[in-house]
Design a protein around this nucleic acid. Structure first.
Length: 211
DNA sequence: GCAATTTGACCAGT
DNA sequence: ACTGGTCAAATTGC
């Protein structure tokens, strides 16, 4: 409500993990009306340090417990220019399977789920247009995932994209390396900000969400 | 001792 | 009044 207010958000459905390479700090948990599973609220660890406005909500799907719907609000302003950025630079865009860079000139460093090799994709969006960046560290969360679905929503929801199907089929992807680059696969959210945020902009077929 | 998590309370929007 | 999001004190783990 408050946070999500008129903001657009990016929604990601994933299995196996809810990590995305950023360091999140849990600040709340709430039972949601039509969901048997509680919704978890996370904000960027650096919120107080540098005012990073990024937050996310993790909701376990009712029909599929192994599926987590992650909704991101705000953009990460914390990782810019720091180590993460350096890393990003250092690393080529060898593979950015998971991160979708929505636009900003600089690849947002987000390395979704760095720490967890297995992680997959993540989507972030920002209203402010600030560029997102990822952090080198990821906080492991206990979710276990094998597949992920990425979906962007400006309002609520949309349909799960086709990519999901593919994802599912790729049963277990083993992340190439434990440290997969932050750079890899980033979506630049700036684009999202400008665009209607339709799923259209995402060519899931073209984006290797999983590895 | 410090930092992160948990959890109940409070607040805002509908 | 109800629901959902955030705050903040208490608790727990490192």
């Amino acid at each position: 409500m408050r946070a999500s207010g008129g903001e657009k958000a990016a929604r990601v459905e994933r299995r196996r993990t809810a990590e995305d390479g950023f360091i999140w700090r849990k600040y709340g948990q709430k039972e949601i009306h039509n969901n048997k599973h509680p919704r978890l609220y996370f904000r960027c660890t650096y919120k107080h340090d540098i005012g990073c406005p990024a937050t996310r909500q993790v909701q376990q799907a009712e029909d599929d417990p192994s599926l987590y719907v992650i909704t991101y609000f705000g953009d990460h302003t914390c990782c810019q220019g720091d180590a993460a950025g350096a890393v990003l630079e250092a690393e080529d865009v060898k593979m950015q399977p998971f991160v979708i860079n929505f636009g900003s000139a600089t690849a947002s460093s987000g390395s979704p789920w760095l720490s967890s090799p297995s992680d997959t994709d993540d989507v972030r969006r920002s209203d402010s247009g600030a560029s997102g960046s990822s952090q080198a560290v990821c906080s492991p969360e206990e979710f276990e995932v094998k597949e992920a679905k990425v979906e962007s929503t400006s309002e609520d929801s949309q349909t799960v994209d086709p990519a999901a199907a593919e994802l599912s089929s790729s049963a277990d992807f083993s992340c190439a390396s434990p440290a997969w680059d932050p750079l890899s696969g980033c979506l630049d959210w700036d684009h999202f900000g400008d665009s209607p945020f339709d799923c259209e902009f995402l060519d899931f077929d073209a984006i290797p969400l999983f590895q």
